[in-house]
Write a protein that binds this DNA or RNA. Structure first.
Lengths: 225, 225
DNA sequence: GGATATTTTCAGACAAATTTCAGGATCCTC
DNA sequence: GAGGATCCTGAAATTTGTCTGAAAATATCC
């Protein structure tokens, strides 16, 4: 799980980073709104912790621009102010949750967990689409009786697809989310893994299949019920 | 948008229902946890507002069982208690957000909006003209039941036409927008694609058709209703 | 350190999208 | 209504993107 922390008070930012890393999140820290927006636009994060009062670019503005760019990473806003109007305005700008400083680190973690859980659409340890169940802990893919083990990359690719079923995931996005932002993986790598996955899907006899959208990417297809 | 409100204080429940209905949500009210769970399990709601203290079945228990049953409807928890531990426990049981009573109705609505926002976005965006719907993500063109996939260029051409219906789009504009500014595509290329599209339109049996304006370009024609 | 699993690379087969071309249909002007 | 310009459309030719088997490279486990 990757977290982006945008907070201009360095000491607080680093404390947050440490808290998150203790929970095995991978945290990136940036200290102003402009950098925050740049990083966030990469879409590689699972959640963003965002201060409202920031140099260069206001937190509200950051969320707003993010949403305009169709980046839907969950955002948890932080603020020193405790005005209800601010809360509403934050949420309406596209934030997903809101906390006022000072806050309890346990509550922060709980809220972050709640936000990241929604991503997979499914709570807890598994991701389901139609007759498929992907265990997030064992990386086992199950359909009815049968079950197969996925490799790490296979898992990462399928997880991406399953976490927004129907949506078409562009190849570049798969590359940046699975191989990393600055990797030199080529399109063919994705194709090969899609091929691996289709083989396993058909072995399992699942109703779900992976559809191709030429020149764009892939998406899950589940036959009408 | 459908909301389920689970709250044992009838007066509060009805007030909530009224607030939601003023915002054009369709609200169902139930007054204990057992009924709440039953209704929620139907999966027909876009968001659930759930009190923690409930007769028959505790709110935490309701969320938990919902999540076990793989129902991922967003849940906003309500409670009179303001203990951080309760918040954490609520969120960890699978709730998506949390509010303490008494609360401001504006904030409630903002939080509900934040929870439901994501749902609508999953569909991705689409362009509609009369009985035609063009998905911008899957490039599928749908008319009533039937649906066809468009190629990259077919899609780009039709998208241009559909994004300003009625307007006549000059061929040169189609060329420069679809083939690129400095391409040497000829008029006939456009004609060929228009022909492809007309074929698909008539296969779909759509009321919409593509009209020719000689020496200029093309436009969509939809018969008067 | 060898066995196993995973990941990358590569090339040919394949399929879909795109371009090209040509004959025929239609429209417009004189 | 002749003749030229414009447009339509089927089919072939070409290009482009994708699939997939196999081998090579790398990582992981016991």
């Amino acid at each position: 799980m990757r977290v982006l922390i945008v907070e201009d008070e360095r000491r607080l930012a680093e404390a947050l980073g440490q808290i998150m890393e203790e929970q095995r999140y991978q945290a990136d820290l940036v200290y102003d709104g402009a950098d925050g927006l740049d990083y966030a636009l990469s879409g590689q994060y699972d959640v963003i912790v965002l201060d409202v009062m920031l140099p260069k670019l206001d937190g509200l503005e950051v969320v707003h621009r993010l949403r305009c760019a169709h980046v839907s990473t969950p955002v948890l806003m932080l603020t020193a102010r405790d005005e209800i109007d601010d809360k509403i305005s934050g949420l309406d700008h596209g934030a997903d949750d809101y906390m006022t400083k000072p806050f309890d680190s346990g509550e922060l973690l709980a809220r972050v967990r709640a936000l990241t859980r929604r991503q997979g659409e499914v709570q807890g340890e598994e991701l389901c689409v139609d007759d498929l169940t992907l265990s997030l802990t064992t990386r086992a893919l199950t359909c009815r009786e049968k079950s197969v083990r996925l490799g790490f990359k296979e898992f990462a690719v399928l997880r991406l697809l399953m976490s927004s079923p129907k949506a078409v995931i562009p190849k570049e996005e798969i590359i940046s989310r699975v191989w990393g932002l600055e990797s030199d993986a080529e399109d063919n790598n994705v194709e090969v893994y899609i091929s691996f996955l289709r083989k396993k899907l058909s072995f399992l006899g699942s109703r779900v299949s992976i559809g191709t959208v030429r020149k764009v990417g892939y998406h899950l297809e589940v036959p009408a019920p």
